[in-house]
């Protein structure tokens, strides 16, 4: 295993974490994403908003090549993470996804124990050399996800037996356990009640200290609460991107304004 080259780290600090350039996504004959250019800042939360079917989730999934699992999906243009094109033929999506984790709309814990849910990622990626190390990873991930106190005495119970909010935080902990650099969240709170949502939002806010977070959300309030930057998608086009404050208070584009003021969506 090599030492991490220093200049890489330096680049991470100064440049944007992810930069997409002229990204096109096709589903068969449908042109789902058109000409998207975006820079995503490290260690911050970027929210993708827009009406349903606008392509925000599709674009999110291109960021860790989850779209590869769909046969008819085709991506053009370049998406660079730390300056490396993730659609380069040399890139193994498996390795990419270890670096860019993902949390989904519906909590999807595996039908295994809580412990095994968290340990799954570290195990497949060979992140621990001993049981003790694995225990350490599991405990620290649960702690970071704010779930430790709730589950520390029932780690061998199935993850599917928890409440929806706990399940979603478990999924976040599961993603953290692989120690990714970017975490993608696809409407992580849409299946949760307001109290659980508040907890997850709090968690997202804490996580931005260590991770670059991209969140797709349906709720503009949520985008306003958790994100530093916001991107508005409409009909597969990135309409506007900027500081969250600016987008909500002073949108430049008519469509953004209409959406934010509730004319459509």
């Amino acid at each position: 295993m090599n030492e991490m080259p220093n200049f890489e780290q330096a680049k991470t600090m100064t440049e944007s974490k992810i930069s997409a350039n002229k990204v096109q996504v096709y589903y068969g004959d449908t042109h789902a994403i058109k000409d998207v250019d975006i820079e995503i800042q490290p260690r911050s939360v970027t929210a993708f908003i827009g009406p349903s079917g606008c392509g925000k989730s599709t674009f999110l999934r291109t960021l860790n090549r989850m779209n590869d699992t769909i046969d008819i999906c085709r991506v053009e243009g370049s998406i660079k993470i730390d300056g490396e094109n993730i659609y380069d033929p040399k890139v193994d999506p498996v390795q990419l996804r270890a670096k860019v984790g993902m949390v989904f709309q519906k909590p999807n814990p595996f039908p295994k124990s809580i412990y095994d849910n968290i340990a799954y990622g570290p195990r497949i990626h060979g992140l621990s050399r001993s049981k003790a190390e694995l225990d350490e990873i599991v405990a620290s991930s649960l702690q970071k996800a704010g779930l430790w106190e709730e589950v520390k005495n029932r780690l061998d119970e199935p993850g599917t037996g928890m409440s929806g909010g706990q399940q979603q935080r478990l999924c976040i902990a599961r993603a953290i356990a692989v120690s990714p650099e970017v975490i993608l969240m696809d409407e992580p709170c849409s299946a949760l009640d307001p109290i659980a949502t508040a907890k997850v939002e709090e968690l997202i806010d804490e996580l931005r200290e260590n991770f670059t977070i991209v969140i797709v959300t349906h709720s503009m309030q949520q985008a306003a609460r958790v994100s530093q930057r916001t991107a508005f998608f409409h009909l597969g086009v990135l309409v506007e991107e900027g500081l969250t404050e600016d987008i909500f208070t002073n949108p430049k584009d008519k469509r953004t304004q209409d959406y934010i003021t509730g004319r459509f969506g």
Binding site: N64, M66, T69, V94, Q95, L96, R97, A98, K99, G101, M102, V103, F104, N108, P109, F110, P111, Y120, G121, I124, H125, C171, R174, A175, V178, L184
Partner: peptide
Amino acid sequence: MRDGSLGLGA
């Protein structure tokens, strides 16, 4: 379930 696992890089 598949997405969850693939999303973790499995």
